[in-house]
Write a protein that binds this DNA or RNA. Structure first.
Lengths: 228, 228
DNA sequence: TCAAAAGTGTTAAGTTTACACCCATGA
DNA sequence: TCATGGGTGTAAACTTAACACTTTTGA
């Protein structure tokens, strides 16, 4: 271990990939963006969007690039889920893969770009079989998101800038897969001063119209308490 | 992407390492096992115990091997913390490193082996500067451990098979860095039926002696509720 | 006999849950 | 005028937090 050069040279190198669990929320449902493979091996099976880490690119940056390539989206909330390093996880070659989740607002994504990759939004409750260990990656990502979303205000990443309280509640119900009492939910939201009522009204879902709210990042940073 | 072979070949390969945050608890204090480097670069600086992933070895197995090499311990609770993939994180060569934490009972580790690696136990509240991004790895590991320990019975990994309630409480106090009310703590422990009082008594810390308890894995699996 | 750690209950405060009706509006 | 989703408060159950003294025993 005294000669720096030999210290590294004696060891093998590996392909390192990233795989992205891209989550979106629309019409009260959580969806993942999956690709249907139209080539062998595993043709006809679904997979996560992935890509290889390049030289001069950090692993995090590779994940951002892969997300950008598929959705056209930049500056998106992403978090590392974990690294999958079983020897035979990819039957082609040994590839060590780092999974990330991304939370996006589906309407902001580039629909044509998504279609050109043969990708589609699949409801989280009816996921098809997936290649390799991608199902496991998704399970781990969902566990992480459910944990994270109770302690950090990341749910807003999935919503438009202006949203109704019903939308926000439906989102939580979808994430936890359980119904929440409307009055109790609204009571808790009312305590979070950084979820601000605007004077705008959404008339698309009811005749009466629902007040639109927004998340105030700056106000949140002062408060720093989030618990739902 | 139609030719499987080219699909992989066009991409670069990387050294992949593992780094272990090895935590032990002794005399009411949490400690990490660190190595003092006696070679360049970064001679004199402390680092985590690490090693390179080998062919025919999963990343998880590499972490287990590294832990075994340093401590002589097998079958240890380890969890992946995350992957560190900045391009220049290692000034020698590009190395992508996967961090793991391990919780061990210090007394079961092979003291001579540890010494032969020039490693020592360092109090978690007075950590020295560390090489590369190792301090960040430790911070992330601590956050993860604090979260995990409230929802899973992993604290027992740090204690001997038989332990007193005072030891257990001191462990929690060390992890959260705050004092806990003794009566409230014991009330909560009493509700966990799988933390069983034995008829053995520890006389080393007081004249009166303290009842020794044990964690019953099987009883826990039935109950499955853990919250501290 | 006394110092030092072990052990033991109760009450108040705060948090969480359950629950049902009126409102505003466009079709 | 009525069907639809929007909006609102209170009381009971449960959980958490605060708090101090007695016991045992070896030195």
């Amino acid at each position: 271990m005294k000669k720096q050069i030999n210290y590294y040279e004696n060891h093998p190198k590996f392909y390192v990939a990233v795989d992205c669990i891209i989550m979106g929320f629309i019409d009260g449902e959580l969806n993942l963006l999956l690709l249907k493979r139209n080539f062998e091996p595993s043709m006809g099976y679904w997979s996560l969007m992935g890509g290889f880490v390049q030289n001069e690119e950090s692993v995090d940056d590779a994940a951002k690039r892969v997300l950008l390539d598929l959705t056209g989206l930049n500056d998106i909330y992403m978090e590392q889920v974990g690294t999958f390093g079983e020897v035979d996880r990819d039957p082609g070659e040994r590839v060590i893969s780092v999974a990330y989740y991304a939370l996006i607002n589906i309407k902001e994504s580039d629909k044509k770009l998504v279609e050109s990759h043969n990708a589609s939004w699949v409801n989280i409750n009816s996921l098809p079989p997936l290649i390799f260990d991608h199902s496991e990656m998704i399970e781990q990502a969902l566990r992480l998101i459910r944990m994270k979303i109770t302690t950090a205000p990341i749910c807003f990443e999935l919503l438009p800038k202006l949203f109704t309280l019903t939308q926000l509640q439906k989102l939580y119900e979808a994430i936890y897969n359980e119904v929440i009492d409307k009055r109790n939910f609204r009571k808790r939201i009312a305590e979070m001063k950084y979820i601000e009522k605007t004077d705008k009204i959404d008339k698309t879902t009811s005749k009466r119209g629902a007040a639109l709210y927004k998340f105030n990042h700056k106000a949140y940073l002062k408060d720093q308490k989030f618990k739902l």
